[in-house]
Amino acid sequence: MRKLRLVFLAATSLIGMAALQGFAPAPEDRSLIDIERASVRYREPGEFIEGTRPVNGPIGEIVVEKPFSIMKRQVTRGDYERCVATKACKALDGTGDPSLPAVGVSFYDAVAYTQWLSRETGQNWRLPSDREWALAAGSRYRDDAYTEISDPANPSRRWIATYNAEAAAEQTIDPAPKPTGTFGENEHGLLDLSGNVWEWTSTCYVRHRTNPAAGTATEVENCGVRIAEGRHRAYMTGFFRDPKAGACSVGIPPANLGMRLVRGEGRLREWLGL
């Protein structure tokens, strides 16, 4: 009981310290969804080369290994502009309704925003990993393998088949940002997944190469390219804001680039050593 009382008093003191240091609570409408138990059939991202031919990445069921909390909605332009006002974030191009999702956001813009929000709130905000995004998306997560065609003598056959399959599956997308909730809610309660805003993840692009004859395998990570998730997976150059100029994968580029953040364990738990 005495130990519990000491922890409570320490917590109360540290909360007061946080207030004195200027930490502000996150806006009330930035509600979070706790992802504690979820599973999804997930394909490993990146490029996979077997010998000399491109192949699909491995696929299998993944589950939540460590629970996490993710924003119910995407970060809005108004959210982002508060960061711009402090000069911690680079201004977005053009103007827009502050209540609509922030779009035209590069990976580095998104990282700057997470750092600013963490400082402002005293909480640990970050981009989700691709696996976390897929688990949170659930039924909205879409496998990015469109064909099993593989012709070592003519790799373009696979590229063309992938493009045609993706184009046939893709509906015409109005790129104009839409009000929160326009694209509905998934089974976990997250809004607007796989709508017209693709969301940055922290996951880097990786090229996997195997040589079955020699029994060797190599991986080369390129963090200048990150994964953005939405109606389909996209590999995007990190500093691009316009997805039509920065898509690194064959197929239709995203309509918009935005973000939705994960909140990690707060500083209070770190201070208390919990």
Rank of each mutant, 00 (worst) to 15 (best):
F23K: 14
H208N: 15
N56V: 05
C89M: 14
T182C: 07
L20V: 15
D151G: 06
L20H: 08
R157F: 01
T95S: 14
R260V: 00
H208C: 10
D79K: 12
G258W: 04
N196Q: 14
A26V: 04
D34N: 08
G22I: 11
K72W: 09
S106L: 07
D29G: 00
T121G: 03
S156W: 05
S31E: 06
D34V: 03
P155C: 03
T203Y: 12
A134R: 12
E219L: 04
R260Y: 00
G189V: 13
E47M: 00
S150V: 00
W159A: 01
V103D: 03
H188M: 09
V250G: 11
G94I: 08
E170S: 15
L4I: 07
F183I: 08
R2F: 08
E81R: 06
M71T: 02
L117N: 00
G22K: 13
G96V: 01
P27C: 06
P58L: 00
G238N: 10
D34G: 06
P27V: 05
E132C: 12
D93K: 06
V103L: 03
P27L: 07
K244D: 13
V7P: 08
E65C: 00
T52I: 06
T95A: 11
P67H: 06
G94T: 12
T203V: 13
E221V: 13
T147D: 14
M259S: 08
A217N: 06
R43I: 06
V103M: 01
T180A: 11
T12S: 13
G51F: 07
A19S: 13
V63Q: 15
V103Y: 01
R241F: 04
R267E: 14
S129H: 02
I35W: 08
G51S: 13
G60Q: 10
R41F: 05
S118F: 08
R41T: 08
T12R: 15
